[in-house]
Nucleic acid binder design. Sequence first.
RNA 1: UGGCCGAUAGUUCAGUUGGUAGAACGCCUGGUUUUGGUCCAGGAGGUCGAAGGUUCGAUCCCUUCUCGGCCAGCCA
Length: 573
Amino acid sequence: MSDDAVATDFVREKIRADNESGKYQSRVQTRFPPEPNGYLHIGHAKSICLNFGIAADFDGICKLRFDDTNPETEDQNFVDGIIEDLTWLGFDPDEVVYASDYFDQLYDWAVSLIERGLAYVDDQDAETISDQRGGFTTPGTNSPFRDRSVEENLTLFAGMRDGQFADGEKVLRAKIDMNHENMQMRDPVLYRIRREHHVRTGTDWIIFPTYDWAHGQSDAIEGVTHSICTLEFDSHRPLYDWCLEQLDLPFEAPEQTEFARLNLTHTVTSKRKLKQLVDDGVVDGWDDPRMPTIRGLRRRGYPASAVRSFMDHIGVAKTNSTHDIELLESFVRTELNATALRRMAVLRPLKVVITNWPEGQTDMREAINNPEDDSAGTRQVPFSGELWIEQDDFKLDPPPKYFRLTLGREVRLRAGYFITANDVVTNADGEVIEVHCTYDPETAGGQAPDGRKVKATIHWVSSETAVDASVNLYERLFTDSHPGSGDTDTFSSLNPNAREVVAAKLEPALGEVAPGEVVQFERLGYFAADLDDPSVFHRTVGLKDEWANIQKRQQNQGKQKGQQQKGQQKKKG
RNA sequence: UGGCCGAUAGUUCAGUUGGUAGAACGCCUGGUUUUGGUCCAGGAGGUCGAAGGUUCGAUCCCUUCUCGGCCAGCCA
């Protein structure tokens, strides 16, 4: 266990206490148990970091177990994808196992349950069983098949396995208590018949154990000590314990501990809803950079290490919580600030002509690759008399505190020269389509020999050597910070502008970026070259934008002033 | 409606064996800076869900209440 990073959450606290009391011989084993019916999302990452993190902290082991007990929705692609995502996140399971590996054992244990009069075969359909379960304040009623003889149950259960009954015709139920205050204990279903092809067992089995019968038993088979799951399984814990108690294990049974799942603002972390986004074509797929899936984040350029530090930071508790997605982004920025190479790219190009630049001449300017990391070195960037700059970096009528380019003002071109804007060319609509500037040859390298200062440094790309690229700019997937909260429909706040594709001009070095590499477009943000087509970039996250805050404040002040004036007018009237 | 779980800065979490509270992110101010980035320094922001009780003293212990989440699948 690492001494310095003493993570103190209630789960680790409990494990420490268990270890001190000698429970499980102070052994620690966890597991990450996804169902292979979808890809992993950021919520799973929390569970992964917790389970694998605990194993690492306590010198224990953590296996990846596929909870493949329901053949209906499960798929090999998801199995492969989950392993891939887990690996990318930086975790290496001690073993990859499957609940279906234990079908024989689970069956034998069910038989033993029947033999001891603790389970029975019920002939009723799902609806009837549901009706008989009763309500929160009303007791359930016993099934008419509850008191079948052991022999009959044994025969029927074998018949279920051997295909003598149709799907849904019979189930195996635990015989516990139809009056139990916990609904989970009212004779839960342990086995159902389902003639579906199973990813691993094919057609060998047509009866499948339910989660409740499979999960704790699988934990026990593997020697799991601490079975960590999310809050919604809280009410299953008595059943988890009951199932284990019937086994007469020669060792201490695993114990379930529940923690609060991760929610993030402006997105959803529910497999069902993510699937709907994919199925409805709202996004391009599970790996769309707008998706909070692991593959989505990867394509978007989130470093796995940033995801991990985020998880470390938010901790583990039982409080239902929704984390601000900005917090995640701040970890992404911190990581990328230290590692990403700086490059220049112009997203919304505006032409600049340097009128006093020697006709046809191209200069090579030296630019720093990463001011945070000297070892990243420098590169040469071509400079000429015709450049692209950002439309936002020139204003004919500059608002207060705007200190970028405007007529008559001098600014610095990053790694280039000081330029002064003298004139503009406008189109028929009066929009500026070209800015004419002069440069000061004395300012090569970015400093004026006479010591005069400029307030702004702007980025640029020389037009003749510019590389064209399509850049995807992403906004929040949902405009509502808590989609679906209250009575609102989750998808009603879907942001139709969550992706904007822009035709950008890049400096030549950006034509040689490796797939998946993340660079900083100076002054704009971090951008990831697409995994399949590196001429396409995805905005991972923008830089912090002080200018945007200034503008916001100015707007608010304007509003307040307007309101004050309105108020005064009212008083007068 | 019954049971279980939860409630501490804007947000998410720490914490106090009972002596009125900290961090991170966000926000604000200043400094540095060839990124309005980074970095550095500082600041604002909390009646610790509410009301009672025990106590010299309660955010912490007790009771009641309020609000939120979960549970009545042959999903997990």
